[in-house]
Design a protein around this nucleic acid. Structure first.
Lengths: 350, 350
DNA sequence: TGTTAGCACTCCCGACCGGAGAGTGCTAAG
DNA sequence: CTTAGCACTCTCCGGTCGGGAGTGCTAACA
């Protein structure tokens, strides 16, 4: 991450105020509003100059000339990195997690309720990635020619689950080559636990198949799809998304819902979010365009992993518009993921 | 059900045409359109007269003077009862169900996939009610005073699941009375299998508590809520709902989503739909206001039960705007519920 | 030099208006 | 009973026109 343009304290205060107000009102915020509502000790005119500077730095945007300012994705990023200090979640809210867990028995149910509670606490849609069945591995994986232009990818896991994916062949390929490729993949992947096959790992493997890149451009994606279709993501309170003013147009809501309902896509999103190097418990924030998925260009994701005695089991996340209460979301996600982890440890440790 | 106003064959043809066209276009349909697009052998003027009659019968509505006609809920009802003849689902689509089932192992997963497939086949949101854990019964049930104005309903099932619901006391009630009521409910409900406690049965019981009706108006509902929170409903492809032109306003989508996400409410809906007397396999249609739930005033539900050797296990349904392709939806729901039942019988017999 | 007041300017938004189009109801003729 | 014709109604769409909010600039001020 870049070190940021090191703003003057005053600019920081103003940016913080803009973010705060915009998150609250969903309206572009003007200099007058800032000088009235926030105790900056500055007149509107002075603030105007600062706003202008911040816009030049790319931290604010103007929807149109003579409108107030709105934080840009980069502006939110600076806010998240340097300007906010998420408080601890109030004790009573933390207690709600334990209280909920106390009433619930199975793991699956526990995760469902956790998702719901997270959504309520954060006032957003919540996602919980469910752990894969323990010890599930790839048993075999093969490519079968279907036609000149298509091959079928067949994946069998140790639990016996079978998944198929059609892979388009953008260039013709000899049967022998296809077989070669098939065995290469098998060698690479057979008996590997599904857990270990994150997006990044698969990308690395598919990159090593350079030779076939041309004709199997989509293989990597299909493979990832197939793997992910084994996964499950619990989605709670999508209605919160639909209520956001930025998603007034129901077509946007439709797209988002479709995205959330196509399990594989969501997993891909969460996978791409996880920074393998970060310790469990760290909260990650992805803002708008940082998501790289078109459907989520206007959304932000705040996520953290949960697990058992240090081992990562899954992820818990909050999804909202980029105009998100990042501070609150981080508080909730951090706290819930910690509580959940310790509940799991307590309950499932011998 | 009333016998219907016994329309002339010509009126039937016209009503059928109006429904067909409106379902297709979502635009009020006018006399000119009808005479052009449908081979009725009548001029626009004649059709106008018939339309006027149909409106007087309450089968059509006019959004405003000088707009085309739109079927009313009653109009759809007549269409569903008398005017349509849902075809068998094409063999290839039926095969998709078996094919899907073949690839899937557990019951839970089977039902999830069934919901998805149903949604895709019908082009609507689909709901599947999951069977309760076998043999789950009520262990105890009690009312505990919390304050002058509230009591807490505590429900424990034989699986050990505990559910609480706050019940407002609209009138003061003595502790002794509360205890009496508590034992009455226990006597009525203890050891009853949850399966047997449908909406209707509970209504009957709560009706017998007349004496307490005044101060415990909400008890019945809370009890039903609590029971239902044990249930689960799978919802698939809500995005289809969001795409309907009648739900453009995202606030409506928000309400619908919130409704679908509050599991209990959905179960209540489905319960109220099931006509206990009907044989399993029969398809039921609820149109708009027939649902009695405000949130669903503009929605229709097409449902059928599925089960194992004649025993009902759950329900499968399709949800859409009242402007629904009833014929197609009935085809899909009927066929899928039958296939699902026979798949279950095949797989889980003995 | 940094801050502030004043002012002209820009742009959105809602209201208003008027014409085109679609559809109706009615009447009178076939 | 059906149909053509006609006057009427209502929505929708595009254009116009203030009002309001907010900006950028300039000049005065500490």
């Amino acid at each position: 991450m870049m070190a940021g343009p090191s703003l003057t304290p005053r600019k920081r205060d103003i940016l913080r105020a803009v973010v705060h107000d915009y998150v609250l009102t969903a309206e572009p915020v003007g200099s007058r509003t800032l000088s009235r509502k926030y105790e900056l000790g500055l007149s509107a005119a002075t603030i105007r100059n600062e706003l202008s500077d911040l816009e030049e730095d790319g931290l604010l945007r103007q929807p149109h000339t003579s409108a107030g300012r709105v934080p840009s994705d980069r502006g939110y990023r600076v806010f998240v990195n340097d300007l906010m200090d998420p408080p601890l979640l109030p004790q009573d809210k933390q207690d709600q997690v334990d209280h909920m867990a106390y009433q619930v028995e199975g793991l699956q149910e526990l995760l469902h309720q956790t998702a719901r509670l997270t959504a309520v606490l954060a006032g957003c849609t919540a996602l919980v990635r469910v752990p894969r069945p323990r010890g599930s591995r790839i048993r075999t994986l093969s490519l079968v020619r279907v036609s000149d232009r298509e091959a079928l990818l067949v994946l069998v896991t140790s639990t016996g689950a079978v998944t198929n994916r059609l892979v388009p062949l953008s260039a013709p390929i000899a049967d022998s080559e296809l077989q070669l490729l098939s065995s290469f993949l098998n060698a690479q992947l057979r008996d590997r636990p599904l857990d270990s096959l994150t997006y990044k790992v698969l990308r690395a493997i598919s990159a090593r198949m350079e030779r076939y890149q041309a004709c199997l451009a989509d293989l990597g994606d299909r493979l990832i799809d197939a793997l992910h279709s084994q996964d499950e993501v619990i989605v709670a309170h999508t209605s919160h998304l639909a209520r956001q003013p930025e998603f007034q147009e129901s077509s946007k809501v439709g797209h988002l819902l479709a995205f959330l309902e196509s399990g594989g896509a969501v997993v891909k999103l969460m996978d791409s979010t996880v920074d393998e190097t970060s310790e469990p418990g760290t909260v990650q924030v992805r803002i708008g365009s940082e998501n790289a998925l078109v459907d989520l260009a206007e959304c932000s994701l705040v996520s953290a992993t949960y697990g058992l005695r240090g081992q990562t089991l899954g992820e818990i996340a909050v999804l909202g518009p980029t105009r998100l209460d990042y501070s609150g979301a981080v508080s909730v996600v951090r706290s819930v993921s910690q509580r959940l982890s310790s509940i799991l440890t307590e309950r499932f440790s011998l």
